[in-house]
Every structure is written in C-alpha cells, then in structure tokens.
Design a protein around this nucleic acid. Structure first.
Lengths: 207, 207
DNA sequence: CGGCAAACTTGCACTCGCTGCACGATTTTC
DNA sequence: GAAAATCGTGCAGCGAGTGCAAGTTTGCCG
C-alpha cells in the first residue's frame, strides 16, 4: 500500500541515496574508514558534499544504510510463514531467508574489513536494533500480544536478531576459524536449536 | 591478580577517567548531548580539553564509559555461582545482581533522557556487546567449551545481555507504561523463563 | 638524596565532520 | 501555465578529533 507511483522526484531521491550509500561502503571497504572523506564519497556519488548531509548525518550511517534491505527481507519472510506455525520456527525460516540473500552475503563480506572501527561497529549494532524493532512489530501483528504488558514479542525478535548476529560473527571467524567450516544456514539452525533447547548446554563436547 | 598496589600514578589516571566520565554523563543528562561541548566537560572535570582526548576518543564514549562497572558486576556474579549449576540459572542470578546494583539503576535513569540520540544509542549498544564478550569468556571458563567450534558460549552470553537490554527497555517504558508496573528483577525473571521455555509463546493471551 | 627515564598533561595548529542559511533549479499541484 | 513545495548547492562557521612538541609529574635506581 502507498507505493502506487513513486513519482520522478521520489525515484531520484532513492537513487541518490543508494548511490551515496554504495559509494561510501565501497570506498571505505577498500581504503579503510578513516582514509575516506565525505568529500570523496560525495564526489564518487556525483553529488555536492553538502548534499551528502541531506541524506545521512554521518559517514557511518551511510556505510551501514544498506542493511535496511535485510530488514525488509527478514520481516517479509517472517510474515510469509503460516500464521499457525510456532513463532521460533518462523523466525528460523526468516533468518535463513536473510542469509540466503546474495546481497546480504556481499554486504557482510565487505563489512568484514571494517570491523575493529568502534564507531562503525556501534552504528552497525544500531542497524541490528532497527531490525529487532521491525521484527517485533511483525510478531505483535501475528500473535496479537500487547507489547506494553508482555515482553515476549520484543524478546523473541531481539533473540532472533542476536542469533543472526552471533552466527554471522562466528562465520566471519571472530575467534580463529572453526575447523568445521560450517556455512551460514547451518549456523542459523544451530543457533535456533539452542534457543529451542532453552539454552541448556547440550554440547556433546567432543574431545 | 595484578591489582596488588596500583601505585599513585594508576590511581590518578583512574580518578581522572571517572571524573571525566561522570562529568560527561551529568552534563549531558542535564542539558542534552548536543548542547554540551568537550570543552565544558573538560572544564567540569578540571582538565585541559586536550586531555579529554587522551582518555576518550569521543564524547559518546565518555558518556557510556560507566557501563564497564556493570560488566564487572555481571561477570563476577556469574563466576561466583556454583560451577555445577546450569548456565542459564547462573545467568539469571548474574542479571539480577546487575539490576540490583544501585549504580546501575542510577546510570540507567540518567541514560533515559539520552535515548533518541542515535549516535549515543549506538555507542550504548557497543557497551552491551563488550559485556557479551566478557561474559562469554566467563562461560567458556566454566564449561570448557571451545568457542571456535561451538557457538554456545557466545550465544548464551549474547542472549543474556540481550535479555537484560530488553528488560531495561521495557522497564523504562519504551512502549507506553506497562499497567502491571513490574520491577526490574521481575522482568529479568520473566525474560529468563521465556528462554527456559525455548521461546515458545506461552502467553495466556488475555482478550 | 640526586638524577634520569618514562609517562602524563597541556597548548598549538590543523583537518575534517557537520549544520544553518540563502539562493537557484526542478518538480508537483492547481 | 503559474504558484508552491521540494531539492541541490555554495558559503560561512563551530566544534570534534589528532599529531607534535614542549613542560611537568611520577617511578626507579644508584
């Protein structure tokens, strides 16, 4: 609803926005965050430096902006599941849909280089929280729970996104590579089955 | 270990650090983040503006710095629990220890005013992630699991901290006040029992 | 006690991030 | 086709954040 004909102006704005965002991500992933100025980003996106700030209030925001796409994938995949399915199961599918998205893969890989920059990491986390909120609304829409007196919707959404974050982190090898070398969908399943088991340590703990 | 006698120099450094941090938090919670300059913070803490940046790389970092204290409480409370206790149960106690800390309460209330500032929120989240990491190490130390091939330790730690975050958020009334008006320890218990139930919706769902 | 070395604080100068304002260009609406 | 709203851009300016080179304090050892 409400996307009948965006109009030329809207389309141009969206185009400019993505142009700036992708320029920011590309340049920063190549040269490192602090070796890129806003002027260079604006130049690459072919806009005036001042225009950059009409779209983003900071460099970090522009770099992270692409994550909004994943949020859409996540929420849509969740709402597409049958309404009588258990919520955690739907979330598992939604998470798998996100990690299956090639754009998500590419973005994650580009972001990989940018870990270690605390400020950027912080904004990255803010993007995750935005995902949580959007997802929580979807859970509320399905369960009909009142988020003002029941924190279940917000909690499952937050848990799912946290699970996604942990899976991605592990996959990127934050800790020295996993000798098993699992892929992202596997890790998502692993995470969700831990939740399903009530987070009780079921590790077979192989020597 | 390694804190036998900090020495005068170390003590002065720590004092300066906390002086700057608390000045930053106080001023910003009073006047709002963007109406406070680094110069004012430095002035209040009785140091040169340049010195501020010897301790923190940004204003936001200084405001959020106090959370390190909660991290200590969290980890110590966890490690103090009996080693044969189920991890989630220990985490529940650790979380309760954090919310029982009066300093934590005070900090949360001060932070309340500062929500809505995206950049600060982002740094706040980064502080939560730091808690996750510290807690994950403690879990590894107890269970002996290898975090390189088993994401359980990192996941439970992340889940616990996420639960804390959700509980605090709810308590601050991010959603219009809860008519039940529960206190923080109650909310922590609620969160952890949801985890215990495998995040399956057990809501009685009153009409 | 004397003095040296390391670490901390401070001032200076500079770049860059970020914003308010005003003006011209483009688009939408009537 | 003209008025109104919106967008892009340049300018001017404040404040954030950093490297450098002092001056000062602290720790250490003879």
């Amino acid at each position: 609803m409400a996307d009948a004909v965006p109009g030329r102006r809207e389309r141009k704005k969206a185009a400019t926005r993505t142009a700036i965002a992708s320029a920011a991500l590309r340049l920063c992933s190549e040269r490192g965050l602090e070796h890129v100025t806003v002027e260079q980003i604006a130049d690459t996106a072919d806009v005036a430096p001042r225009t950059f700030f009409n779209y983003f209030t900071s460099k970090e925001e522009a770099v992270v902006a692409g994550n909004a796409a994943s949020t859409d994938v996540l929420v849509e995949a969740f709402t597409a599941r049958p309404a009588d399915e258990p919520v955690p199961e739907s979330l598992r599918h939604a998470l798998r849909a996100v990690v299956a998205d090639p754009e998500h893969r590419q973005r994650v890989l580009r972001m990989r280089v940018l870990r270690g920059h605390p400020t950027l990491l912080a904004h990255q986390l803010a993007a995750y929280v935005a995902q949580e909120q959007a997802l929580a609304e979807a859970v509320v829409a399905r369960t009909g729970a009142d988020p003002a007196r029941d924190l279940y919707p917000v909690l499952v959404a937050a848990a799912a996104v946290t699970g996604l974050r942990v899976a991605v982190q592990h996959w990127l090898g934050d800790h020295g590579a996993d000798p098993r070398d699992p892929d992202l969908p596997e890790l998502v399943d692993e995470v969700m089955s831990h939740f399903d088991a009530g987070l009780r340590a079921v590790t077979g703990a192989p020597a």
